[in-house]
Design a protein around this nucleic acid. Sequence first.
DNA 1: GAAGACCTATGACATTTATCATAATATGAC
DNA 2: GTCATATTATGATAAATGTCATAGGTCTTC
Lengths: 233, 233
Amino acid sequence: MEGHPMDSVCDCSQCELRKAFFDSFSDEDLGDICRNKTEFPFLRGETIFREGDLIRYFSYLKSGLVKLFKTDPAGKDQIITIAGPYDFVSLLGVFSDTHQSYSVSVLEDAVLCCIDIERMREIALRNARFSMNLMERMGAVSNKIIREGLEIRKRNTHGKVAYILLKFCKDIYGECIFDLPVSRREIAENIGMTTENVIRTLSELRKEKVIRINGKEIEVVDPAALERISNYG
Amino acid sequence: MEGHPMDSVCDCSQCELRKAFFDSFSDEDLGDICRNKTEFPFLRGETIFREGDLIRYFSYLKSGLVKLFKTDPAGKDQIITIAGPYDFVSLLGVFSDTHQSYSVSVLEDAVLCCIDIERMREIALRNARFSMNLMERMGAVSNKIIREGLEIRKRNTHGKVAYILLKFCKDIYGECIFDLPVSRREIAENIGMTTENVIRTLSELRKEKVIRINGKEIEVVDPAALERISNYG
DNA sequence: GAAGACCTATGACATTTATCATAATATGAC
DNA sequence: GTCATATTATGATAAATGTCATAGGTCTTC
């Protein structure tokens, strides 16, 4: 894990993600976690951890945007998913596996909240409601990744590109106009097609006046048409 | 849930899956579960539950083979995965969702062990080690599904077919000769290609003397070649 | 500011995959 | 057993997708 711990000015009792993870905590446990957590700020392009690294922390994203990916023997990356604050938390292997099974790197400056894995385990073992919350939270993340994989698998190239554009505009940014946080190649690595065809498909959507393109900036001009393409293709 | 409860002759303390789920149980909790579980036998072709059904049980497969799938508005099925005893257990939504998010039906006669969801929750809430075991177990299943999805996504048709044949021979049956528990169409629904191309690809593998086909019976004659095709394609 | 690396873009072409048609075989219902 | 239906199979063709080549633009590094 790169990055340098930042002064932990954060008060866990005020954390907006508290409800998702620590709602069941006693003041004591919350104080314990709060004093023992470390926040790591990361800049765009930095790698948080790599496939195969030892798991030392339970971690969740407080802010920013990351990509989860695997690298094959030939050095080609395959992106598992792109995730924001509520979508990225150590997946379920965190208590059973010893090593990371994928890499995570930063697409938009991020803050990661990290809790020593042993301390986390210890608390989980004496607070069953917390274990349950954790299970629900991590389960939701896993399920989302599984569902997304199925949606991508069943679409053709146009459908795939439309699907991921809609993910950016609906799930990630909540706006029809946004700056793509990834390259065309990374989109290709995410949805399983070639970079050239991603570029070509984007150009076609532009020619059909469904989107407007200005470098990294994308504007979804005709969301209904994009939905149709996503659902049909 | 169809099927009729069978006489519960099973003694949980002897259950071969016990270690996976109930290792941390006190004799008391184990007895409690054992007395309150219900075993449902299912025949090939039967549906265990459908997407959208109310979740009433925590369930895991004791024996047999099942498929997890989703049905789209047009009525087309998409198979999420094919799972045996250690690979199928209520996924992580079981404590947070109220309804099933996919359907499960039976490929090979199966026995499902079911525990009332409320009782399960209650035990999980007072036995944190059990919650932890559960989390690990369910996490392993989720992770396996995610990984499988990625492997399928990155392969071309030959690689996909080779991949799933290897799954049958290595993971499911542990033998190079086996009866396919699914139709060619179901294979297509699993790996995201057309039925015709699954059939064609199988025929090609036969012509290349990598496999032998006799109806549902498949023999992997040249496992090394099949591995190469799976890894290259 | 020059060089190199990467990103975006597009065209031409080859290959892969899907679609449509047809038929033999197998399976299930009555 | 027979009829209806689904499955397996194969070929012909169309459509989609990948590969290769080229080029201008952008960004980083020295």
